[in-house]
């Protein structure tokens, strides 16, 4: 199903959770809403589900205004962050709930419901556990029950709010892969919320990066990683050095290296450059002053080494092949020249 959000705005008291959000979700895609807490991603998800009414804007399901569709007819499979399982019902009853509450005319016969529950239990790898209560399951198992319950109503769209947030790291990784495979199998339009970029990049076809109630960038994981559109996205993805620099005629001087930027030819002024550690190289000092840094520490990581460098423009982290250090005779405490291979430069506002 195609879902469109047009100009969504939503306030909670004085807090603006959504400030003009436009988004189109393609049929069958797996979309991640990525952002820090308070960025509006959960509010967007809940608004799409119909659990939140927006102050302004419209949500379209297949081109139809979702406001005119009741919660029951939307057929949204929603998986809550803490699962919201019904504690007094068995796992099987939890999964069957959405079928059992249908009006009598639309309700499948009991045998069919039971068969469907069994099938879903198998799908989420919980066969034989239908008689247990939620309290008797582990976190990862509850997660899958919540998913099975959402899938039972044959949803047109599956919405997951921080689906792995409450799980420990190992289970989270396993479930992530499992969910990816499941999506490839059933291919239902899926949107999930996360604040974990690894999770978003590993799972999603497209990632929506949100900040402060607005969308910063939409793109495939590779696009987002290779071409962060804004300063915020760079900062949020983390790991990059943030170096103040000066731009003259579109050319930036970053820690002694001159680089042509994407900025207009006639741009002159202060800017900030984002440089990833592996985009930095080091060499023996060659008489220049402005590219020289002091090596504070060296941490070997496999064939590479992570360098902490102290440059006049600030602290720089570099990731270089270890042999290049030996070749240049660089050790802790020695001086070296910094070489920037690539950078993205944003003018200082």
């Amino acid at each position: 199903m195609t879902i469109e959000a047009l100009g969504l705005e939503k306030r909670f008291g004085s807090f603006a959770a959504l400030r003009g959000v436009d988004l189109k979700v393609e049929p069958g895609e797996l979309l991640a809403l990525l952002g820090p807490s308070g960025s509006g991603k959960t509010t967007l998800l809940r608004s799409i589900a119909g659990l939140e009414t927006v102050d302004r804007g419209q949500i379209l399901y297949e081109g139809i205004d979702a406001d005119t569709i009741s919660l029951r007819d939307r057929r949204v499979g929603f998986v809550f962050q803490h699962y919201a399982l019904f504690r007094h019902m068995t796992i099987a009853d939890n999964i069957a709930f959405g079928l059992k509450v249908r009006p009598r005319r639309e309700r499948p016969p009991r045998a069919e419901i039971n068969a469907r529950v069994e099938q879903l239990l198998e799908l989420v790898q919980l066969g034989g556990l239908g008689g247990r209560f939620p309290a008797q399951l582990s976190g990862g198992q509850r997660q899958r029950v919540a998913l099975a319950r959402a899938l039972a109503i044959e949803p047109r769209v599956l919405l997951l709010d921080e689906p792995f947030g409450a799980l420990d790291a190992r289970v989270r990784k396993e479930l992530r892969r499992w969910l990816r495979r499941l999506h490839e199998e059933i291919h239902v339009t899926t949107i999930f919320v996360t604040h974990d970029q690894d999770e978003a990049f590993e799972l999603a076809d497209r990632v929506v990066v949100m900040n402060d109630g607005k969308i910063e960038q939409i793109g495939s994981p590779a696009e987002i990683y290779d071409q962060p559109a804004t300063e915020f996205v760079y900062e949020f993805l983390g790991g990059a050095n943030r170096l103040p620099c000066h731009v003259e005629g579109g050319v930036a001087l970053i820690a002694g290296t001159r680089l042509t930027t994407d900025l207009p030819r006639d741009f002159t002024g202060d800017a900030v450059a984002f440089v990833r550690p592996h985009e930095i190289g080091v060499a023996r000092p060659n008489g220049h002053i402005d590219d020289v840094a002091q090596v504070r520490s060296i941490l070997p990581i496999g064939p590479d080494a992570r360098l902490d460098l102290e440059h006049v423009s600030g602290h720089i982290e570099a990731l270089v092949p270890r042999e290049s250090l030996d070749a240049a005779g660089i050790g802790v405490g020695s001086r070296c020249a910094v070489r920037i291979a690539r950078a993205r430069v944003f003018p200082t506002s």
């Binding site: 909670f12 119909g50 659990l51 939140e52 009414t53 919660l71």
Partner: peptide, 8 residues
């Protein structure tokens, strides 16, 4: 928050 949740 509670009062804000339309389904409740």
């Amino acid at each position: 928050m509670r009062a804000e949740r339309p389904s409740l």
